[in-house]
Design a protein around this nucleic acid. Structure first.
Lengths: 233, 233
DNA sequence: CCTGCGCGAAGTGCATGCACTTTATTGACG
DNA sequence: CGTCAATAAAGTGCATGCACTTCGCGCAGG
């Protein structure tokens, strides 16, 4: 039992737990998330679990269909493309805001995070993906723009989900060195270089992930047919 | 999620109603939104009203403090800046996706909307602002990217809210002609021109709105002091 | 062996109740 | 006349109950 380290805001706790479980692929796309089980598992009533699911749904991590059990969302290939497009713009904005304005303490924090990434490299793939994602969120948080943090977080999590769906096993060595290069460019204050690096970094990730629309990439038939079933109903 | 015009979805209905009321300034920033009154007004229980408020809160239109009555959010000047920064990037992305790819029916729809804007010009200011906002959302919807629609909608609504806070009365003639110019550039397929137009259009709006950080722009004392009181407690 | 049907189990939609917190009122006192 | 404390009113936090919907499994028929 995960107790309650945080006395209040149970909804937020459940959200965080589920988010993390989702992006680490402990909960795969399509996994059912019944309110009662969730509530029981976290020691709260359905009301709270329901709220958490609503929250996650608004973040695009969970799909909520009327009278049906909530499920972890299964992003379409086109969704993934769209999300990466947006992500590129937002992250370019971030490095533009950040280049040459980072304080030493912030640089240190970033480098520490990358160190953690390197340490986790070779370990479970899901953890590497999560850490890489959190690097970008950490970067966003340094802009002191809550809105930007929110959107980038949301999008980064969804990218995470996509990666877990479409990419092959060992995208491990994904881009730690690229993260380091970005930090250096930011430190030097070279806006153009930083933006270019970020752009190509994300391009790399996207290309590695979004291999093909191709047929049914190993997903269950039921997932593939879901949207059609939707329209039929 | 702002989409899904489902007739059975009471939460969504209430959300839409409140969103509209907020951006038309029928509900000013700081207005209290008690769950029971809301529920009574819309003929539902607190549960539903509560859900709607949660939704709106996740969109940044409503502020939800624990054990306190929800209020229409009062964006800070810095928030407004951040939001406009993001908006510029997203809308540039939109025109880039759209330029030269619009079907005649879509062009017609856009022109019809602008016509509506012109008709509403001179009428109540709030309606003009809403229509101008909806033009941008309409544009976003033509990308067929649900994520993009969601983010641009959210951000556009929040800009709306900001405008109502900071801008002076007659920002009416805001940019209908600029909207027309953008449509033409999109029709011609001139990506650069369209992006430039959109950028300067939004720049215009932002500059007209974000006049100054200046002191307490006519807001109630209680609002101004809120953050301080927060920390003191 | 597969298909379709129907009924019990499981799950959601929504309202309401109770405990607790905040807000407003009032009245005593300086 | 203003200040402040005590108290009532209003409001939220959360759980639970009931009606309705969907899900799943067994069973009859082909």
């Amino acid at each position: 039992m995960p107790e309650t380290p945080n006395p209040k805001d149970k909804v937020g706790m459940i959200c965080r737990a589920l988010r993390r479980a989702i992006i680490e692929q402990a909960l795969e796309p399509g996994t059912k998330l019944p309110e009662d089980s969730l509530g029981e598992r976290f020691g709260v009533s359905r009301t709270i679990a329901r709220h958490a699911l609503g929250q996650l749904a608004s973040e695009g991590l969970v799909e909520l269909r009327r009278n049906r059990i909530a499920v972890v969302v299964t992003p379409s290939w086109q969704d993934a493309r769209d999300i990466f497009d947006i992500r590129m713009e937002l992250e370019r904005l971030i490095v533009r805001k950040l280049a040459g304005r980072l304080k030493p303490a912030q640089i240190a924090k970033l480098k520490a995070h990358v160190a953690a990434e390197q340490e986790a490299d070779g370990g479970p793939n899901a953890v590497s993906i999560r850490l890489a994602t959190e690097f970008h969120i950490l970067l966003a948080s340094m802009t002191n723009s809550p809105v930007l943090v929110r959107y980038v977080s949301e999008i980064a999590y969804r990218c995470c989900l996509t990666l877990s769906l479409f990419s092959r096993p060992h995208s491990s060595e994904c881009g730690i060195s690229e993260h380091i290069a970005i930090i250096e460019a930011l430190q030097e204050g070279d806006v153009e270089k930083a933006m270019t690096l970020m752009h190509s970094h994300l391009g790399e990730v996207a290309n590695r992930a979004l291999v093909e629309p191709s047929p049914a990439r190993g997903r269950d038939l039921v997932d593939v047919l879901a949207p059609y079933a939707e329209e039929a109903g």
